[in-house]
Design a protein around this nucleic acid. Structure first.
Lengths: 215, 215
DNA sequence: AGCCTAAATAAACGCTGTTCAGTTTCTAAA
DNA sequence: TTTAGAAACTGAACAGCGTTTATTTAGGCT
């Protein structure tokens, strides 16, 4: 009757460990399936049944490992955040803060244009943002953003700007980069001829750099 | 047998006119219902059945007046474009191109923050953009955008900038404003404390104006 | 071997956009 | 005024979605 309270035997322990490991493996199996489908068909083409089919389980099984589709969304958003961080890492090696800032910006835009789906997931998708603060992806995103702000701060400290309002400078530069990428990702560049679009983006990036020099 | 080819009688004509009028009235009835539901429940809360219920027709009837949900979406997008144009109109009265440009930008951001749903519909919603070029909303949006570019051109002509690259200047300013609004609309300002957000937007707008002065 | 728990699933629910066969309403000609 | 035909409208269904439930299957413990 009170067997629940008995200490675990060694075999029980190892079995419990295996169970836990299997649970984690199943979660990552589901996630990697979601990842693949997302990359192939985009977020719209991603649904529970297609995940289930790919891993050869029933749709209901998914719900034993993820509470709902949002949890999968959060996990995927974490992958996007990691991909973005990895893409930006090369900039961190640059010592001069000004050059680091420029390269960071260039890589940020580059990431957005090369991986529109990831960017979309991170910054453009409607999601239950009320809960995202508690998610890993949020923490990671904040860390990357902090790195950006710190680089701006380093530029301020090194007197690259006249202005010392680090937060506003960072935010303003981010707005530009985010706006630029967003117009591409959500296909609002159609008002420009296809062959002009990328050039316009490059010119605009160069222009914001010039503008920032005068700050 | 060939009665199809007979000339319409006068009564037939007037009836045909009434029919046409009724058709147009029905279309606008559907659209205004969609408009209301959209304003109350947002785009996600808008569906064919809710429109049908509101106008007291069956869902199938909707399809006699609009090909599919996308056509309603386009019509709604036109309303959003019209609302945006109306919001920006006051700027057109300002004679000095530089002040006109600033006010245009201020009103643009103001519109986005005051009507996030409209802004979303215009610039952030995933839509079958392949066909939107043929829609009225696109024409209207292009006209408003042209007004913006012309204002930048007027500033260039009046030597407000050293640079003469009108297109890139306009695009860069647009990127900033669009990015700023997008971060609000898609709730990515959560990394800043609520009470700081609007102030940051204002400061950033002031900063981009300052930056533009040095162009 | 038998019991209990945990894993997996088939089937359903309620929601969506959309279509179609069938009914009702209206109009034009006899 | 009657009647054939067209036009307007709708109930019911389909296929797809996220999610839940009752039930079956499998695995580990006594």
């Amino acid at each position: 009757m009170f067997s629940n309270f008995a200490l675990f035997s060694e075999t029980t322990m190892s079995i419990a460990e295996r169970k836990e490991r299997e649970k984690a493996e199943m979660r990552s199996l589901i996630l990697s399936a979601a990842h693949h489908i997302f990359k192939e068909k985009g977020y719209d083409g991603l649904n529970i049944r297609s995940i289930a089919e790919r891993i050869e389980y029933s749709p209901a099984t998914i719900y034993l490992y993820y509470k709902d589709k949002n949890e999968i969304f959060y996990a995927l958003q974490y992958e996007a955040a990691a991909a973005k961080r990895d893409h930006l890492i090369p900039a961190a090696a640059i010592e001069d803060p000004w050059n680091r800032l420029i390269e960071f910006g260039r890589l940020y835009v580059d990431f957005g244009l090369k991986h529109p789906d990831w960017y979309d997931l991170l910054f453009l998708t409607r999601a239950p943002m009320e809960h995202v603060e508690n998610q890993e992806c949020w923490t990671l995103g904040m860390a990357t953003h902090s790195f950006f702000v710190e680089t701006v701060q380093a530029c301020v400290d090194a007197r690259y700007f006249k202005s010392t309002d680090t937060q506003t400078i960072a935010y303003t530069l981010w707005c530009h980069a985010h706006g630029l990428v967003s117009l591409f990702v959500r296909e609002r560049m159609r008002m420009y001829p296809p062959e002009q679009r990328e050039e316009l983006a490059k010119k605009s990036f160069a222009m914001i750099v010039k503008m920032a020099e005068g700050l």
